[in-house]
Amino acid sequence: MARVKKLLRGTLSLRSKTTQISKIYAMIKTLHKLTGLGMPKTKAIF
């Protein structure tokens, strides 16, 4: 997790509000994708 935080960095250096929002959405999407990669694939057995 520390690597992800270091990679994404919590700073917004962009001036425009819309570009800041776009950057935040990109960070969230990346974080969700990396979290999903670490989840185990399970299957119900009956």
Rank of each mutant, 00 (worst) to 15 (best):
M1E: 10
L31T: 02
L12C: 06
R15E: 05
T11S: 04
L37Q: 05
G38C: 14
V4L: 13
A44G: 11
T19C: 00
I24D: 13
T42E: 04
P40T: 07
K6R: 06
T18E: 07
K29Y: 07
S22V: 09
A26S: 13
R15W: 04
H32D: 15
S16K: 09
R3T: 09
M27V: 08
K5E: 11
Y25A: 11
I24N: 14
I45C: 06
G36R: 12
L12D: 06
L37I: 04
T35P: 00
I28S: 03
I24K: 15
I28F: 01
A44S: 13
T42H: 05
L7Q: 06
K29S: 14
K17H: 08
K41N: 14
G38W: 02
K17F: 10
K41C: 09
M1Y: 07
G10R: 07
K33V: 07
T11Q: 07
L12G: 05
V4K: 04
H32Y: 11
G10T: 08
L34N: 00
K33Q: 15
K41W: 09
F46N: 12
L14F: 11
K41E: 13
I21Q: 09
R9G: 06
K17G: 00
K29Q: 14
L7M: 06
L37R: 13
M39K: 14
L34S: 01
H32C: 15
S22K: 13
L14G: 03
S16N: 07
L34E: 03
A44D: 13
A44Y: 15
I45Y: 08
K41S: 12
M39F: 07
L14H: 08
K17I: 03
V4F: 05
G38K: 11
T35E: 05
L34F: 02
L34C: 02
M27H: 01
L8K: 05
Y25F: 11
S22E: 12
R3C: 05
I28A: 11
P40R: 15
S22D: 11
R15D: 05
L8H: 04
L34K: 02
L14V: 04
I45L: 12
L37D: 08
S13Y: 00
T35Y: 09
G10I: 06
R3H: 08
K17R: 10
K23M: 05
Q20T: 02
Y25S: 09
K43I: 04
S16Y: 09
T42F: 10
L37C: 09
L8D: 01
K41I: 14
T42S: 10
S22C: 07
K23N: 00
L34W: 02
K43P: 01
L34G: 01
K33G: 05
L37M: 13
H32M: 14
L7R: 08
L12W: 07
L12N: 06
T35L: 04
L12R: 03
L34R: 02
L34M: 11
M39A: 09
T30C: 10
P40I: 04
T19Q: 10
L7H: 04
T42I: 15
A44E: 15
M1A: 12
I21C: 04
M39D: 08
R9K: 10
I45M: 12
